[in-house]
Design a protein around this nucleic acid. Structure first.
Length: 890
RNA sequence: GGGCGGUUAGCUCAGCUGGUCAGAGCGUCUCGUUUACACCGAGAAGGUCGGGGGUUCGAGCCCCUCACCGCCCACCA
């Protein structure tokens, strides 16, 4: 038994063990699936949201890492064929935003560098940042397969993007057309509707006079139509004035022309039912190139849009004297000029909703341009059906409605971005106007329509929306489009875990693309965690400066505590405030576990000599084994339901209350019983080791480091317990329950608490041992009391004195499951401390008597419920009788 | 303008298909140098589960309504 012993350090210091433990895990190769799946094993594959390559993880990310790692570790211990592919996302717009700022600090910009040099800089930048996130993930304990580490800009992703786009194109799901899109003048790119953040703002509603054209071809100074607008600068692009067809004020003007100020353009006055006569003046200027409503109306009336802003939202040549001005300068100038001309009829404050760029906050400009679109109607319908028909389940379920609502109202996806960092759209234009889409890395060899050679073709300069490649993640990371062994073995994946904030951005897109390209749902469960908020309840963001680096927290209190602090007491989809107090109590738990293990390891008795017969289990052992069985079943059930908060709560509760507070205290009694046979002491110790081992298994998914470290020491002491890693040990099966033992210890615990209360009430010094009198309420209770005497006496610091059944209870007695108890007279106070307790018994008794007398209850409630209430009443009657109170008839 | 979530002990939050569901941690108060742990142990106080209706034998849990707080979606100039 001697062998090598790994002693646990006297004090728990997480920083000392974590890196070493992670190295052992890595070296074991167990993060990587075996070459062949274990026979008959279930599959469990996590789809993780690849974080943005440019950023480092904040504490919010630590939650997703924890949730996924808990799941994957649990399933690995179950013996499932598990895989977790880690990786990062190239985040084109975010990456360019960051790099542009770096360049600006050097006095450089995108334009002066040019595309090629810019991308070189970007790759160099990537090499610096790419590993930061991997390192953070490792510090958190992520048991991901690093041999499969991926990047959405790697060759595999690039190929998947090309093939995916080609298939969409070939199936008619891609089109190119002119449309009004969301344009960010600062990022100089199109963005999707999702990235266009609407914010309420106070604006101004100006009323402007447009004079009517005079019969002689000039401008009529006395006749005008007043239009209301919040954007006077766009008048430069006006092509009409619209009124409601039923509006009597303007009916006679329809068909006439107004004259555009400054530019003199003739604007037909048209009638359209979309105009709200009650708003403003009831007359609207129509600017199809700069307003979505106007664009639609322009199409209805055959009006040609006029764009008046360039890509940086400065007035272009079409703006006449205002050309070159920024849109907001132009607004000011135009208002001033109109006022001077006497054509500004009014201006009043007007609350309005304005779209802003999600990335940089700039006001979004609707811009008319030719774009690549993915037709979403069919794709969305399939994605919707998958969830409706239960092939994919979203947790929590309420997000299924959110998901459905979005997909039901989805618009076509403008996938092109006028950026450089990203996957270039694999489409080539031929001088004759034909488009060739190719999935070859080298591009097409010739125009697919007319056969002109590749040399004559030019590739589209736009790149894809980042989410296009992210949307392929579950299968592009497994080798798709090739039918690789990985794809066959690990696809579709099991659980897709992410925050609810990217339900539309990512989850919905993965569903749409996955179903189209692979004909199957990319995952059967979507688990959405809530957001982690800072202490004050505010959202964490870099600009607010309240982002905490998880690595700093880990250095301070350990990765296990960070993981536990982030998951305990949480429920999916609900935000949480992460407080230092919560993290500290998680750290305290790790410390507690550490010390409990130190105790168990240090309590090893002399082994018995071989001739001694094996001892029978003590009551304490029978009880803790039964409790362990329940804990195993409970933890397993909760993990299977992805109830992570419940799992953490249940397993820590078991560890702290059942194992540490009660079992170890009882085990001490058995271990230190000098009168007991060595075999009995040995058996008790072995039971402690067994239960500790089971407990470590249960805790491992949430606190992998501390449990692995303890496991190592346990294995050194008891080789058959842990020769290898806990990480790959088998998840325990629940053993049989022993309800008799549980009832016995429940009775013991109640009696100990009651005795402790009596001591406190009586002011007995903590160290003193006093006599405790008990009148067993039955012969069985007498036996029960004898059975727990060995534990009761030291735990309550009393000498138990059993009195003959029927002995009248003392006036200060308290009722327990075993019978009335009271302290020795000289230790007890003169008053009757149990008056309140008796009163409570009486109240409950009265309530139950009334309830059971009600035929409505006994008649309609299920028999089991009525039975339970009857039993409870009987217990109350017994306890009242114990303390000398006659319950009477009620 | 739609939709969703929250409102449970001083604080932060759990509460599964209505029947020990009135809970946990932290905080507070009182004890405690028992050889695992003061990052601890023992004990205690503290809530008519936002307000008001309703369904039911029985409701934090279901229905209606109101009030705040927050979020998501939404092209009205």
């Amino acid at each position: 038994m001697s062998g090598e012993r790994t002693e646990l350090a006297p004090r728990y210091t997480p920083g000392a063990v974590e890196p070493r433990v992670y190295e052992r895990w890595l070296a074991s190769g167990a993060f990587t699936p075996a070459a062949e799946p274990p026979a008959g094993a279930d599959r469990f594959v996590i789809t993780m949201p690849p974080p943005n390559v440019t950023g480092s993880l904040h504490t919010g990310h630590a939650l997703f890492v924890t949730a996924e790692d808990v799941m994957i570790r649990y399933h690995r211990m179950r013996g499932d064929d598990t895989l977790w592919v880690p990786g990062v996302d190239h985040a084109s717009i975010a990456a360019q935003f960051v790099l542009d700022k770096l360049l600006a600090a050097e006095g450089l910009d995108r334009a002066s560098l040019g595309r090629e040099a810019y991308l070189e800089r970007m790759w160099a930048f990537m090499d610096e940042t790419r590993d930061v996130i991997s390192l953070q993930l490792r510090r958190l304990g992520a048991s991901a397969d690093w041999t499969r580490n991926r990047f959405t800009m790697d060759d595999g992703s690039a190929r998947a993007v090309r093939v995916a786009f080609k298939r969409l194109w070939d199936a008619g799901y891609v089109y190119r057309g002119e449309a009004l899109v969301n344009w960010c003048p600062r990022c100089r790119t199109t963005i999707s509707d999702l990235e266009n953040i609407h914010r309420e703002q106070s604006g101004t509603l100006w009323t402007i006079r447009y004079h009517l054209a005079a019969a002689d071809g000039g401008v009529d100074p006395d006749r005008w139509i007043a239009v209301a607008t919040t954007r006077p600068e766009t008048l430069l692009g006006d092509v009409a004035v619209a009124v409601h067809p039923e509006d009597d004020r303007y009916r006679s003007l329809v068909g006439e022309e107004a004259v555009l100020p400054f530019l003199g353009r003739r604007l037909p006055i048209i009638a359209d039912a979309a105009v709200d006569p009650a708003f403003g003046t009831g007359a609207v200027k129509i600017t199809p190139a700069h307003d979505p409503d106007d664009y639609e109306m322009g199409k209805r009336h055959g009006l040609t849009p006029i764009s008046i802003l360039d890509e940086e939202a400065r007035v272009n040549a079409a703006g006449g004297e205002f050309a070159g001005l920024d849109r907001f300068e132009a607004r000011t100038r135009i208002v001033e000029r109109l006022e001077a001309m006497g054509d500004l009829e009014g201006a009043k404050p007007h609350p309005m909703v304005v779209g802003h760029c999600d990335r940089c906050g700039t006001v979004i400009e609707p811009r008319l341009s030719v774009q690549w679109f993915i037709r979403t109607a069919d794709l969305a319908a399939r994605a919707l059906a998958s969830v409706r028909e239960g092939r994919t389940t979203i947790i929590p379920a309420r997000f299924e409605k959110v998901y459905a609502h979005w997909l039901e109202n989805i618009r076509d996806w403008a996938v092109g971005r006028q950026l450089w960092w990203g996957h270039r759209i694999p489409a080539w234009f031929c001088p004759d106007g034909h488009i060739t889409v190719s999935d070859e890395a080298a591009g097409p060899s010739a125009c697919a329509t007319c056969g002109r050679p590749a040399a004559d073709l030019t590739q589209e300069s736009d790149i894809f929306d980042t989410w296009f490649s992210s949307g392929l993640w579950p299968f592009s990371t497994l080798g798709w489009p090739d039918e690789t062994p990985d794809l066959r073995r690990f696809y579709p994946t099991s659980v897709m875990e992410t925050g609810y904030d990217i339900l539309f951005f990512w989850v919905a897109r993965m569903m749409m693309l996955g179903l189209f390209l692979t004909d199957v749902e990319p995952f059967h469960t979507v688990y959405l965690h809530g957001l982690v908020r800072a202490e004050g309840g505010v959202k964490m963001s870099k600009t607010k400066g309240n982002v905490t680096d998880p690595v700093e927290l880990i250095d301070e209190i350990g990765a296990d505590a960070v993981r536990m602090g982030l998951t305990s007491g949480t429920s999916p989809g609900n935000d949480q405030r992460l407080t230092m107090a919560k993290l500290e109590s998680a750290r305290n738990f790790a410390n507690k576990l550490w010390n409990a293990a130190r105790f168990v390891l240090g309590a090893e008795p002399e082994p018995p000599v071989g001739t001694e017969p094996e001892a029978t289990p003590s009551l304490a052992e029978a009880w803790i084994r039964s409790r362990t069985a329940e804990a195993v079943a409970d933890a397993t059930r909760r993990l299977d339901r992805l109830d992570l908060g419940g799992y953490v709560g249940a397993v820590t509760d078991f560890a702290w209350n059942d194992f540490c507070d009660w079992y170890l205290e009882m085990a001490k009694v058995d271990l230190r019983d000098a009168a007991a046979a060595p075999a009995a002491r040995w058996r008790t110790w072995r039971a402690s080791v067994d239960v500790l081992a089971d407990l470590l298994h249960l805790l491992h998914p949430i606190t992998p480091f501390v449990t692995e470290e303890i496991w190592g020491a346990l294995g050194a002491a008891v080789p058959e317990k842990g020769e290898s890693l806990l990480m790959t040990a088998r998840w325990p099966e629940p053993g049989p329950r022993d309800l008799a033992a549980e009832a016995a210890i429940d009775g013991l615990a109640e009696t100990v608490r009651a005795a402790r209360n009596l001591r406190t009430d009586a002011g007995v010094p903590a160290g003193a041992t006093v006599a405790l009198h008990l009148v067993p309420s039955s012969p069985a209770a007498a036996d029960g009391a004898e059975a727990v005497r060995r534990y009761l006496e030291p735990l309550a610091r009393v000498r138990l004195e059993l009195l003959p059944p029927g002995t009248p209870a003392d006036a200060r007695a308290v009722a327990t499951a075993l019978g009335p108890i009271w302290l020795d007279a000289d230790a007890a106070p003169a008053t009757a401390p149990n008056a309140d307790r008796v009163e409570e018994l009486r109240r409950n008794h009265a309530r139950l008597v009334a309830l059971l007398a009600d035929p409505a209850f006994t008649g309609r409630a299920p028999a089991a419920v009525v039975e339970r209430e009857r039993a409870r009443l009987a217990d109350l009657v017994e306890r009242l009788r114990q303390v000398g109170v006659d319950p009477g008839s009620g």
